[in-house]
């Protein structure tokens, strides 16, 4: 049984289902990567795992407990963190305030955690007083990840953390993500840069039209000729 597991998830935004019997799981300290074409339902699957989408069928298990009916806020309290694909920072608030908001549920002092995030993303320290809306795309993504880290989540869900980021920053972000995983955090990540992402992945999922198409270790998927041809561009 995985640490976090979405099992047989079926559901959508309205009458039509987007996800069809889709299952996704990740272990502590592991990185699981989800790839697939645009509109495959990757973001939708992440929202479903985080309780932001009503499921018609299936359930979500976290730490051996059924959390299918918990509200997103309650999942945060249980130790889950989520970086959505869009609008993932508070644009009108400063970088530091964004981090503070990330730690909203914590009652103990948060200075250490903020310092940790600054260690991880040094550029943010220089920009701490600047509204997040005025940062570059890559810096914003760092703020977004940093915000989610502030709760010290046990599982971190990232929806395209490297979207709109230059290759160098992307490598750096991946390095950071590996660092985070080493702290025994389970990481569930959607990525467009499938090759690089699968290279660091312990587990990989290929979603197509809301179905699990391939599920294997990252290496195995990279080696699979069919996956290479259809999803990794040769």
């Amino acid at each position: 049984m995985s640490f976090l597991l979405g099992e047989h998830m079926t559901g959508g935004y309205g009458a039509t289902d987007i996800l069809h019997d889709c299952s996704i799981g990740v272990e502590k300290g592991e990185i699981a990567v989800i790839v697939g074409p645009n509109g495959a339902g990757k973001s939708t699957a992440m929202k479903a795992v985080f309780g932001m989408l009503p499921l018609r069928q299936g359930r979500i298990l976290f730490n051996d407990q059924d959390i299918t009916h918990l509200k997103p806020e309650e999942r945060v309290l249980r130790g889950m963190g989520f970086v959505p694909q869009n609008q993932n920072v508070f644009t009108s608030m400063t970088v530091e305030e964004n981090l503070e908001m990330g730690a909203f549920i914590r009652t103990e002092p948060i200075a250490d955690s903020i310092a940790q995030v600054y260690d991880l993303f040094p550029i943010l320290k220089d920009k701490r007083r600047q509204p997040a809306g005025e940062l570059s795309g890559g810096q914003r993504q760092q703020v977004a990840v940093g915000r989610a880290l502030m709760t010290h989540p046990q599982v971190l869900i990232l929806d395209e953390p490297t979207a709109g980021v230059s290759p160098i920053v992307m490598d750096e972000l991946f390095d950071r993500i590996i660092e985070i995983a080493r702290l025994r955090v389970a990481i569930l990540m959607v990525e467009q840069n499938a090759k690089q992402a699968l290279e660091i992945a312990d587990k990989g999922y290929v979603l197509v039209q809301g179905h699990n198409r391939f599920t294997d270790s990252g290496e195995a998927l990279l080696a699979n000729p069919e996956v290479r041809r259809a999803f990794l561009g040769g």
């Binding site: 985080f50 997103p72 806020e73 945060v76 963190g81 989520f82 993932n88 508070f90 608030m93 549920i105």
Partner: peptide, 23 residues
């Protein structure tokens, strides 16, 4: 803290929920 959480909620409701801010 409360004031900032109000600003956060006003800025981005979904993200505020994801940060554990109680609406």
């Amino acid at each position: 803290r409360t004031g900032k959480s109000m600003r956060a909620y006003s800025d981005n409701e979904d993200l505020a929920l994801l940060s554990g801010i109680d609406p």
